[in-house]
Design a protein around this nucleic acid. Structure first.
Lengths: 326, 326
DNA sequence: TTGTAGGCGTTATCAA
DNA sequence: TTGATAACGCCTACAA
């Protein structure tokens, strides 16, 4: 690989001149510039970003630490994040933690040893005391002491779900979701506010006995067995709010398998926005959260951190995603 | 951030000694070692990987260029790849090309300017002349001149699908899939061998008139409209091989919507392995390809390239994924 | 308008 | 067993 020195020598100029041409900085005589550019093309020179990173002590890489990129919504968020950061010349390093604390800490170490410039953290573990506020970290869907964070308005989502089902005249309500708690913690996550908003709103509406079914977190997939059980054990329920579209999808399938009609007999609302091929059959009525808006907010936080500015927390609005299941 | 110099000064030794402690290289007196380690802990020193990368001219990052990480199978492959490369201390940089040549070329440039060590390329575009064989690239699902590649045994998959449907006594066969061609090319991809294997095997079995329906590639999602059309226009078909589980899923939904029973009236086979929540209802019978085995093969290729060894092409076996749709 | 030299934080070589 | 010192490739004063 040719270096800037090779180019300088071959063009008969100093390396500073080549550098100036490369970066369009300082004065360079037009004639000199052309000569240098010609040599650059001839020898196939590419500036070595490793050296540049060394000098700047930045490599323009953002690590995105998440439990599992195959989860439908995370997958979309990852996509949007990569697209948006691309325009800022940031690259995304994907880091699956599998919800393990040790993995998360390993990735946080990458900050300390400069393997990445900053980090977007999506965790349900109790690692608050492992991260200091001076680290360039943005948290998604989780409040961490002194760390800026971005989240959807999960509480409002729960409220909206309650209102929608109530308006349809449901009598018996149920919430189904994982408890969104990592294995090593009992902290309250932002996501749990979906349930809280749902329950509190129904309470306001005079409905106090909402069934909440919370199964343990694990890869964000609900097992068929759990679904069958919860549906069987609660035959009187006619209004269900599921923590994600994937769960809603499983619920709807099970309901129809045992002969209940959706939405006639039971109405179901999911969460995430009812996108994707899940909807090639019946479209799931859903509380939508926008991966693009969230990605934008995260991107802004990253840029703010980079520029040493104060980074505000952001709550991203949710929206009503129309479907066929209420 | 403290540097190796700070540690050396504070410990009253030379930087070379600190380096030796850090890397466990050369002789260091036990006493000295402990002194240095103590200082390292005290000042919270972390070796700067930017400097190390600069020196080694390697950063242990692999770029994975793919059309869209939200595609179900790609998503799984990405996951496995990241997990497996983690153990080799490689990090994965995710790069969505959206099937655009310019994007792909930008990512290839990252190799040339040392932003990444090597690249896993998943493309359907005609970029053969843009990449030279000396670049550390591995291709997935696509043969490129002089570039090592990994792919599932798509042809065998097509054959297996044909055999399975034939054994079930189907009379009228159809293949449905995108044509797996990028917008800017008319090359034959590996994926298209699914169709070829299917058709050729049926021919061997004496069935010459297989209907093949190929819709244009685009985000790997088949539109509801296309599904309705193709099902409506081919009412006599009773054996369908779909290019992916997602497509099979859409097909099955549509069939049942118009009152046809699967598998009684029509038998459907998908491709990818019938994993994921797609199967929370009826499990799709499918030709499976293993993201883990593929990830392993890609990983081996990356390591071989790194060590300057000859990198063999690898065809990964497919398998029969039992389900309820044939 | 241009070139020389110093430094970014490591590791490796070589002498002590 | 240890410590100076020279790379790695680039950018940026500073001097010319």
């Amino acid at each position: 690989m040719p270096t800037i020195k090779d180019v300088a020598k071959k063009a008969g100029v100093g390396i500073a001149t080549v550098s100036r041409v490369l970066n369009d900085s300082g004065y360079v005589k037009q004639e000199t510039r052309e000569k240098v550019e010609k040599v650059i093309r001839e020898v196939g020179y590419h500036p070595n970003e490793l050296a540049r990173s060394m000098l700047r002590q930045k490599n323009h890489i953002v690590a995105f630490v998440l439990p599992n990129n195959t989860h439908l919504f995370f997958s979309e968020l990852l996509y949007e994040l990569e697209q948006i950061l691309f325009h800022d010349d940031y690259k995304v390093m994907m880091c699956n933690s599998s919800e393990e604390v040790e993995r998360e800490l390993e990735f946080i170490d990458m900050l300390k040893n400069n393997r990445v410039d900053s980090l977007i953290l999506l965790t349900n573990n109790d690692i608050e005391d492992k991260i200091s506020p001076d680290l360039p970290i943005v948290s998604f869907d989780r409040r961490l002491e002194n760390i800026p964070f971005v989240a959807s308005d999960n509480y409002a989502g729960g409220v909206m779900a309650a209102d929608l089902l109530y308006k349809q005249g449901c009598k018996r309500y149920m919430f189904i979701g994982d408890d969104a708690q990592g294995p090593q913690t009992n902290i309250r996550t932002e996501v749990s506010k979906r349930r809280v908003g749902f329950v509190e709103r129904l309470q306001e509406l005079g409905i106090g006995d909402v069934i909440t079914y919370e199964y343990p977190l694990g890869n964000y997939i609900i097992s068929q067995k759990v679904v069958e059980e919860v549906i069987r054990d609660n035959p009187e329920v006619d209004g269900i709010f599921a923590i994600s579209d994937a769960v809603a999808f499983a619920i709807i399938n099970e309901l129809e398998r045992i002969g209940k009609k959706v939405p006639k007999d039971v109405k179901v609302i999911g969460f995430d926005g009812g996108r994707s091929f899940l909807n090639s059959g019946k479209r799931i009525t859903s509380i939508g959260q926008s991966p693009r808006l969230i990605a934008k907010a995260l991107r802004n936080a990253i840029i703010d951190i980079y520029n040493g500015e104060v980074v505000p927390n952001v709550i991203v609005p949710i929206y009503y995603a129309e479907g066929d299941t209420i």
